[in-house]
Nucleic acid binder design. Structure first.
Length: 289
DNA sequence: GCCCAGGATATCG
DNA sequence: CGATATCATGGG
């Protein structure tokens, strides 16, 4: 376990919404259902001793190969393999970074493994407040995802792209998605289901700028959504959703300003964060909880 | 009732 | 290319 990691910080972020359908935080542990090849694995993550993490499968045994997949999943989910030295080096000469690192020591990016899920979450979050975005998200999951019951609670898997690809906007409208969000989601689902869009393909470019261009070709994916997905799903820690009003507000609070800084000031600030703009964006999101 | 919210797109000058 | 209109709905 890296020294610059505090599991409790992950839990705070994971517990930010009571409507979150895809994992459940309960005190000092989190439970989550994931697809693992031929079966679904419900696992529990806990920190019995500082500096360690314990992964336990709750719904049956795991073969060695599944165990490896599970460990890999967790390492990606909580961004455990990242060397944050570069980020910490920024702090001494940047009051914003210093304040964030002091405020949330050991916080690491919480990633979204599934590309379809990440894109949907971003699209649902476009131009609406987070609370409403969670409401839409939960409705989509509960309408088209799979769930497994454990210990009196449902654990959900995000819907598969193939499922949503077969829907019509009229199917999603009753969930109170706007006509546009419905179209965007279905379009993204079709792109992924038909393999025109694929996470491995995006990572395979070996250059996040190319992945970004590819994402921007998708209808409904603009600069904000592309950056958000690059950060949360693809792990591009320099991807900064510049147009994000939430980030603007986080920076305003941090600087103790009455009004949001304009785009030029934000660009100037972010200019000092080269290589780590996305990670700092995640810390800024955290500061809004 | 009003303003805001983790935007994207089409259209215009 | 930059500014503007439109979408469209809940939260506070």
């Amino acid at each position: 376990m890296p020294e610059t990691f505090d599991f409790r910080q992950s839990l705070v972020y994971l517990a930010r919404s009571l409507q979150e359908p895809l994992h459940a935080v309960d005190g000092s542990r989190v439970r989550k259902l994931i697809r693992a090849g031929d079966r679904d694995i419900l696992f529990e993550l806990e920190q019995p001793v500082p500096g360690t993490l314990r992964i336990r499968c709750l719904n049956g045994g795991v073969r060695q190969e599944q165990e490896r997949a599970l460990v890999g999943y967790v390492r990606e989910w909580l961004d455990l393999d990242r060397d944050l030295e570069g980020l910490h080096r920024l702090a001494p000469r940047d009051p914003v970074v210093q304040s964030l690192l002091q405020g949330y020591p050991g916080l690491r990016l919480v990633r979204i493994h599934d590309l379809f899920q990440a894109l949907c979450w971003a699209i649902l979050g476009q131009q609406v407040n987070i609370a409403f975005a969670y409401t839409l998200y939960r409705r989509v999951v509960e309408a088209y995802g799979r769930s497994e019951m454990y210990d009196g609670r449902h654990y959900w898997l995000f819907p598969q792209a193939q499922t949503v690809a077969g829907l019509a906007p009229a199917d999603l409208r009753p969930l109170q998605l706007t006509g546009r969000k419905a179209q965007y989601l279905i379009g993204v689902a079709q792109a992924i289901a038909s393999a025109r869009l694929d996470k491995e393909q995006l990572l395979g470019y070996g250059d996040f700028a190319l992945a970004r261009e590819r994402l921007l070709q998708i209808r409904g994916v603009g600069p904000w959504t592309a950056s958000y997905v690059l950060l949360r799903c693809l792990g591009d820690v320099d991807a900064f959703p510049m147009a994000d009003v939430g980030l603007h507000n986080a920076i305003r609070q941090l600087l103790g300003r009455p009004q949001k800084p304009d785009i030029y000031e934000i660009k100037a600030l972010a200019g000092n964060w080269n290589g780590w703009r996305g990670y700092i964006a995640f810390y800024l999101y955290r500061s809004l909880l």
